[in-house]
């Protein structure tokens, strides 16, 4: 985690779409690799992963959810992780799809979006790569762009992504990885359609 913090704080923020005059700095980076030429593909082979379900639901966190969110839990095809902060839990709106769930919550100027999916597209020509960061003990990609910080990792067969967006671009919670990682480490498992198996 410290490594990620170090990376997060050492990399300078670049505004993606800044107007003329915005303070942007460019960093030295690795020499660019040769562009990767990929043959056109007509179909997208999809893989449906089978998630691993835990039997230890965090009941206190589940109780903080709204009735509507709790009722939606049973429809999630993947284990539902939620942020642990009570305010965010109470504000959480849970949505589900055939292969995914998503949680959105706002607290003041912060918007938290958490998403987990079991459907993956398998492109053999895209080599395996792991993020340089670590989230919940797993390799993770960490990005910060357009004022949104996000991390993505794979846990128990499910691809999760956590995004933070701040109304105030100077809000420290949306700069660097520190706050994002704090939230990620405290994510709680609250159920899903396989939780009773």
């Amino acid at each position: 985690m410290n490594g990620l913090r170090a990376v997060g704080f050492s990399l300078l923020f670049l505004t993606a779409c800044g107007e003329s005059g915005e303070a942007l700095e460019r960093l030295p980076h690795e020499p660019p690799r040769a562009p990767e030429k990929v043959a056109p593909k007509a179909a997208r082979p999809a893989l449906i992963q089978t998630p691993s379900w835990s039997s230890s639901i965090d009941v206190p966190s589940a109780k903080e959810l709204s009735d509507r969110a709790r009722s939606e839990l049973a429809h999630s095809p993947v284990p539902v992780l939620v942020v642990a902060e009570a305010k965010l839990l109470r504000a959480a709106i849970l949505t589900t799809g055939p292969h995914w769930y998503a949680v959105a919550a706002k607290d003041g100027g912060l918007t938290v979006a958490l998403h987990g999916t079991r459907l993956a597209y398998d492109y053999p020509e895209i080599p395996t790569a792991h993020g340089r960061s670590t989230v919940r003990g797993r390799p993770a990609f960490f990005t910060e762009n357009e004022g949104i910080v996000s991390a993505s990792w794979v846990e128990n067969g499910v691809a999760y992504a956590l995004d933070l967006e701040c109304f105030d671009r100077h809000d420290a919670r949306c700069h660097g990885a520190e706050y994002l990682l704090t939230l990620a480490e405290k994510l709680r498992y609250v159920g899903g359609e396989g939780s009773a198996r």
Binding site: T15, A16, C17, G18, E19, L47, H115, T117, L119, A120, Y121, D122, Y123, I126, P127, T128, A129, G131, F141, T143, E146, G147, S152, W153, V154, A159, Y160, A161, E165, C166, F167, D168, R169, D171, C174
Partner: peptide, 26 residues
């Protein structure tokens, strides 16, 4: 709109997808 300030008028459009060899990426 851009975090309490402004950028140029445009849509920034991302697609975030789960790639088997990577996980959820843009």
């Amino acid at each position: 709109n851009f975090g309490g300030t402004s950028t140029s008028v445009h849509l920034h459009f991302n697609i975030k997808q789960n790639i088997a060899s990577l996980g959820s990426v843009y």
